[in-house]
Design a protein around this nucleic acid. Structure first.
Length: 591
DNA sequence: GTAGGGTTAG
């Protein structure tokens, strides 16, 4: 090696050194090269220095390069834009080193090294990951000041950066709207930004505008659009997107297939999701996990277990997310023993350190199944501090299994920790309602009113004839609302005749029985179902999406509706799917 | 010699 570097002339030595670095694939080799650099004096070469830094970064050890480049003895005359770009890029790539990227940028300015148009995408990427809107604005300001804001690459990264900052989406949209020219990348960045914020309707609208503007989407754009469909539960739209992808010859990348699987699973067509999965040539852990999570959401725990076993047979190694899927599957299907086995398997065989989410799944599983003391014991033995999500699953379990005192003591604590979080009050008040403690329930309600705490309003979406409709409780904003309410009344009479008795205990308000029933009848899911009965052909399936958990009364009523009106009704709630058919639900009343 | 957007859970 030393002979190679000490070649006849400096130029040749430089070239040799660059190719050595190019081929270097281990850190020990790199150290060897480093010592030869120092001996031969080649460390005083800007090209070599930059390549050295890039190689360090590729071997995940950028700190090694910087400690050398920026040491006290270093020759600062060697610093140039390329060198800084390489280092900033390396730091921007890794989540926990992003602030170093900004630090190096400041250092660069201090040495009067001019940033160029390549510097800013790295910096914008770094500030995107740090979520600081002010920092993002500063970098954007510098971009404008140096005149790099006319560059398409820089513009796209700026849009992405603002999308990633809390409260930055409108800034992103401003930059996006001002762009004289755009590419699929610009649109994907903006659409992806809306999707990440859960503003899926806007994402879909923007996709439509993209087509109107004649910009050809690529497979990355389609991944975000599918993600929006999944979020909305818009199956028809999702199917249309799938046809569009085929028609336009957009390549089906792994990620695109994964997004298709996820879309079908979240839109209620798990069998189609499995079909996409089976047709994939190369399945990744994400593909497997998406199917497992999908099966879990549909309460098909046994099949999820089969899938997991198949995955292991073909040699795919499960990761922490796959185990979350499995634990959720067990939880939703009441497979407590299986769930415990998977938890042990994860820890002991796969050496995965459980995160709070894994513990959350376990607590949820125990408390749903009514093993409340087991759940509490588990919480006590957890090596990490339980979070409010965990306490809330305990209360949910308390409600289903009549544990009044336990839920009161947990709620007290939760309300102390998060006094403005509405669901902490709603959960407790639901426990009271379930046990007919109406005075206590009213008291909670009054506390909420006094503190100005709002319950998240229930909202149900339904897709019909290429249109997405939204309903909230007592909604009168729809053109057809008179017909809808008439239909709700008719539904109420029909199911009563068939033997349905309203379960009024979930209603928050303390009013007399008849009024309670009236309030129940205005629940958003009932409005959506009535709307669907009015506007879709007889015997066709009805699919609705609810933002909260479905309430006991609506669940019971929907069973009767499915029988009386001969309709299969698929409800996606915040947690899972319910398939209602001929008077019963796929969740077997376990949710 | 350097650059941009994406998928699984909670």
């Amino acid at each position: 090696m030393s002979r190679l570097i000490q070649a006849f002339n400096r130029r040749e030595a430089e070239q040799n050194c660059l190719s050595l670095l190019q081929l270097c694939n281990t850190f020990s080799k790199l150290k060897q090269i480093h010592s030869h650099l120092l001996k031969s004096g080649l460390h005083n070469n800007p090209l070599v220095l930059t390549k050295f830094s890039t190689t360090c970064s590729e071997l995940n050890n950028i700190d090694y390069a910087t400690s050398f480049v920026f040491c006290k003895e270093a020759d600062t005359h060697l610093y140039d834009t390329f060198l800084f770009n390489a280092i900033i890029r390396a730091y921007a790539q890794t989540n926990h080193t992003k602030q170093n990227a900004i630090f190096c940028y400041n250092l660069m300015l201090r040495y009067s090294i001019k940033p160029n148009k390549f510097t800013y995408p790295f910096l914008l990427k770094a500030s995107a990951g740090m979520l600081g809107l002010n920092l993002g604005k500063q970098i954007h300001g510098a971009v404008v000041k140096y005149g790099f804001d006319s560059d398409l690459y820089v513009q796209n990264t700026t849009v992405h950066m603002y999308c990633c900052c809390v409260g930055g989406i409108e800034f992103a949209r401003n930059v996006f709207d001002e762009m004289p020219k755009s590419s699929a990348v610009s649109w994907s960045a903006m659409i992806g930004g809306y999707v990440r914020l859960g503003r899926s309707t806007e994402a879909v609208d923007l996709f439509r505008k993209m087509q109107f503007d004649g910009v050809r989407p690529d497979e990355i754009t389609m991944v975000s659009v599918l993600s929006a469909c999944a979020d909305l539960g818009a199956l028809e739209l999702g199917k249309w997107v799938q046809r569009y992808i085929d028609k336009e010859g957009i390549p089906r990348s792994e990620e695109l297939c994964n997004a298709l699987i996820d879309m079908f699973a979240k839109c209620g067509d798990i069998d189609e999701a499995i079909k996409v999965f089976r047709n994939m040539n190369e399945k990744t852990i994400v593909s497997w996990t998406s199917v497992i999570v999908g099966l879990a959401m549909h309460g098909r725990g046994k099949e999820a277990v089969d899938f997991f076993d198949e995955m292991r047979r073909v040699g795919m190694k499960p990761d922490g997310v796959a185990f979350i899927g499995m634990l959720t599957a067990c939880s939703h299907a009441g497979l407590v023993e299986q769930g415990c086995r998977y938890f042990d398997l994860m820890v002991n065989e796969f050496s995965i350190v459980p995160k709070i989410e894994h513990y959350g799944c376990m607590v949820d599983m125990f408390s749903r199944a009514g093993h409340l003391s087991k759940a509490l014991e588990f919480v006590k033995e957890m090596p990490i501090e339980p979070n409010p999500v965990i306490w809330r699953s305990l209360i949910y379990g308390c409600r289903s299994h009549g544990e009044l005192e336990l839920s009161e003591s947990i709620s007290k604590r939760l309300i102390g920790d998060e006094p403005m979080h509405g669901s902490n009050y709603v959960l407790l008040s639901n426990v009271y309602a379930k046990m007919s403690k109406y005075e206590k329930k009213t008291k909670i309600r009054n506390v909420m009113d006094k503190k100005g705490i709002k319950k998240v309003p229930g909202c149900t979406m339904i897709e019909l004839n290429n249109e997405i409709y939204e309903f909230v409780a007592g909604d009168k904003s729809h053109d057809q609302y008179e017909d809808i309410y008439r239909m709700v009344d008719e539904m109420g009479r029909a199911i009563k005749k068939a033997g349905f008795v309203a379960t009024t205990s979930d209603v928050l308000l303390d009013i007399d029985e008849e009024d309670k029933e009236d309030t129940l009848n205005k629940h958003s899911e009932k409005l959506a179902i009535a709307f669907a009965l009015l506007n879709s052909p007889p015997r066709t399936m009805i699919r609705i999406v609810k933002n909260l958990r479905v309430c006991t009364d609506c669940h019971a009523a929907t069973k009767f509706i499915s029988k009386v009106y001969e309709r299969e009704i698929v409800v996606r709630d915040r947690n899972r799917f319910h398939h209602f058919r001929d008077g019963s639900c796929s969740c077997k009343d376990f949710w």
